[in-house]
Simulated assay, not measured.
Amino acid sequence: MATVHAAMVTGRRYTGVEAQAAGLVDAVVAHEAVLPSTVARAQAPAGKAGPTIASIKETV
């Protein structure tokens, strides 16, 4: 959390590798892999959205 706070208040910029090493990001990919990687990472939890929302609605 200290790294995030320092980045916000100082405006320090990180490379992708530095950000990953500091725990600010989960993954670093090449520029041309950003969209395919994002889509692949989003597909896993996307299937859970319907049941999760239904459960929340039932609970509330």
Score class of each variant (00 low, 15 high):
Met1Trp: 13
His31Ser: 07
Arg41Cys: 02
Ser37Trp: 00
Val34Asn: 01
Gly50Asn: 08
Ala27Val: 09
Arg41Pro: 01
Ala49Phe: 14
Val29Tyr: 01
Ala46Ser: 13
Ser55Tyr: 04
Ser55Val: 02
Val4Asn: 10
Gly23Tyr: 04
Glu58Val: 04
Ala54Phe: 00
His5Phe: 12
Glu32Leu: 00
Leu35Met: 11
Tyr14Cys: 03
Lys48Gln: 06
Ala42Tyr: 01
Arg12Gly: 14
Arg13Gly: 13
Glu58Asn: 11
Gln43Ile: 08
Val17Phe: 05
Ser37Ala: 15
Val39Tyr: 02
Val17His: 10
Pro51Thr: 03
Ala30Thr: 10
Ala21Val: 11
Ser55Ala: 15
Ala19Ser: 09
Leu35Asn: 12
Ala44Glu: 08
Asp26Ala: 15
Ala30Tyr: 00
Glu58Thr: 07
Gln20Ala: 14
Val4Phe: 12
Lys57Cys: 08
Ala33Asn: 13
Gly16Gln: 03
Ala6Ile: 03
Gly47Lys: 13
His5Leu: 15
Asp26Tyr: 13
Gly47Ser: 11
His31Tyr: 08
Gly47Ile: 05
Ile56Asn: 06
Ala46Thr: 04
Ala7Gln: 06
His5Cys: 08
Val25Ile: 15
Ala2Asp: 15
Ala2Ser: 13
Ala44Tyr: 07
His5Trp: 11
Ala6Cys: 05
Val29Met: 02
Pro45Leu: 08
Tyr14Asn: 03
Thr38Arg: 01
Ala54Ser: 10
Ala27Phe: 06
Ala2Gly: 09
Glu32Pro: 00
Pro36His: 03
Gly47Phe: 03
Ala54Lys: 01
Val17Pro: 02
Ile53Lys: 06
Arg41Val: 04
Leu35Lys: 11
Ala22Phe: 04
Ala44Pro: 00
Ala22Glu: 13
Gln20Gly: 02
Ala40Pro: 02
Arg41Tyr: 03
Thr10Arg: 07
Ala30Trp: 00
Leu35Glu: 15
His31Pro: 05
Tyr14Glu: 03
Thr59Arg: 06
Ile53Gln: 09
Ala6Leu: 09
Thr10Ala: 06
Ala46Gly: 10
Ile56Phe: 13
Val4Pro: 00
Ala21Asn: 13
Gly47Asn: 11
Gln43Thr: 11
Thr10Pro: 03
Ala6Phe: 07
Met1Ser: 14
Leu35Ala: 14
His31Met: 07
Val34His: 00
Thr59Gln: 09
Met8Leu: 15
Ala33Tyr: 03
Thr38Tyr: 00
Gly47Arg: 14
Val60Asn: 07
Thr38Ala: 14
Ser55Ile: 00
Gly23Asn: 05
His5Tyr: 12
His31Lys: 09
Met8Glu: 05
Val28Gly: 01
Val25Ser: 09
Thr15Phe: 05
Ser55Gln: 12
Ala46Phe: 14
Val39Ile: 14
Tyr14Trp: 12
Thr3Gln: 11
Gly23Gln: 04
Val28Thr: 05
Thr3Gly: 08
His31Glu: 04
His5Ser: 12
Ile53His: 10
Ser37Phe: 00
Ala7Arg: 06
